[in-house]
Design a protein around this nucleic acid. Structure first.
Length: 224
DNA sequence: GGTGTGATCGTA
DNA sequence: ACGATCACACCA
């Protein structure tokens, strides 16, 4: 699968126009074109949306994200410059960066502005399902409760059927995957912590995880 | 509710 | 070797 062509596995060619529910609007390039630590908390309460093959929408509201930067960020895939696997982190703001980890899981990021020659992206860690719950359940039969469908980066990727085939997709080109807002603002006082799952020497003391306080759909209870 | 562990493979 | 993880077993 070619990168960034507006195609996703199991999905046809990019569709130029998407009929969104009343009050929803797709996020434009300028939304993503800012420093990653500013973009990340601004993504809370926005909607990840996928237009399925049959025209139906799968959507979930983001409640937990993490920022990953460039050479100065010891926890980032981009810390050592571009490689085959992390190339999309260097593709400019508003692209989908999907990577493979632990030999079996996919995780989804949204790229942000970065310094010249550097990369940056926001890991989508958890979301509250909004539409297409049946399809999410079909893709994730091991999820016992609906609150487990998108509670975790690999779970979220699984619920949306996003794999390496979606890596490099442009989120601002009318393609099958994009972000939208229904007018719900990001929390004025988001929860904040260090990032999850990083080896101690890679944390760098950086508190680049943001989440919606007390939200039931977080990847870990209580959020902190 | 919590903790501990095996699975599994592309990349460096 | 090592992961920006998950599901399940087991204990409480």
């Amino acid at each position: 699968m070619t990168r960034g062509t507006g195609r996703v596995a199991g999905v046809g060619e990019a569709h130029p126009a998407v009929d969104l529910p009343t009050g929803w609007r797709a996020l434009a390039r300028r939304f993503f074109d800012r420093p990653v630590a500013e973009l990340a908390p601004a993504l809370l309460h926005t909607l990840l949306v996928r237009r399925e093959d049959d025209g139906s929408l799968t959507a979930a509201r983001l409640v937990e994200v993490e920022a990953y930067g460039g050479r100065d960020d010891p926890g980032s895939h981009a810390r050592r410059g571009p490689t085959r696997a992390n190339a999309t982190m260097f593709a400019g703001p508003g692209h989908l960066y999907v990577y493979f980890t632990y030999g079996m899981h996919w995780c989804v990021n949204v790229t942000a502005r970065a310094a010249p020659g550097e990369g940056a992206a926001v890991l989508l860690r958890a979301a509250a399902p909004v539409r297409g719950l049946d399809r999410m359940r079909a893709r994730r039969p091991t999820a016992r409760r609906d609150r487990d469908l998108c509670a975790g980066p690999a779970r979220l990727a699984g619920a949306f059927g996003l794999t390496g085939a979606a890596d490099g997709l442009d989120l601002c080109a009318g393609g099958p995957v994009f972000l939208a807002t229904d007018g719900t603002p990001a929390p004025a006082r988001p929860g904040r912590s260090t990032r999850i799952g990083l080896a101690p020497h890679r944390c760098g003391g950086i508190r680049w995880r943001w989440y919606v306080p007390h939200d039931p759909y977080l990847s870990r209870p209580g959020g902190s």
